[in-house]
Amino acid sequence: MEDYKYLFKVVLIGNAGVGKTCLVRRFTQGLFPPGQGATIGVDFMIKTVQIGDDKVKLQIWDTAGQERFRSITQSYYRSADALVVVYDVTSFESFRCLPDWIKEIEQYASNKAITVLVGNKTDLIEDREVSLDNGTNFASTHEMRFLETSAKEADNVDKLFLDIAEELTKRVQVHEVEDSKDEIAICSQNHTVSATYNCCRW
């Protein structure tokens, strides 16, 4: 009965105001929301995308950037298949804080999760404070994928999430092939987080 084949969890983190919520809205609803308030706690969105022949469902958890929600947001890292760390290219401060976010990931997220660095708000060309090189360098030192986006102009937003979905799907499929070679059922506990979710969705 399922209307999708794989389910992945994506968690967005980064300073408040860098555009996490806008990115999620842009991707899931195709709009750039006018002045909504800061996210409280954790928000949730869902979107099913087509990757090759398969339908892939993305559960997207959009977290509050503020310090005071840190302990609840951290609790969502653990089960994430992908973590998206967002900064604002017009705010050097948001870039400067990235190491803190990386530390959080190291501490709370599964080491199997993929991490993506995103510099958002590229449409604000005049106000740019963080260069493309800054972002690229940071991402490569920390072995992350990297992308610059504009939630406002819908630049690279779909690509961001689709790349994640594709990568995760590929990973599961590789495992599935290995599993069938080994004649072990997919459900046998010890595989990637995503494989486990696929059979036990709750």
Binding site: Q36, I40, G41, D43, Q59, W61, W202
Partner: peptide, 21 residues
């Protein structure tokens, strides 16, 4: 044994923080 509630805990907790307009 196999039933999991991760999603429900996550989602209900998120709803507890709803900032609906």
């Amino acid at each position: 044994y196999h039933r999991r509630y991760d999603f429900f805990v996550s989602k209900f907790s998120s709803m507890c923080h709803s900032s609906n307009a």
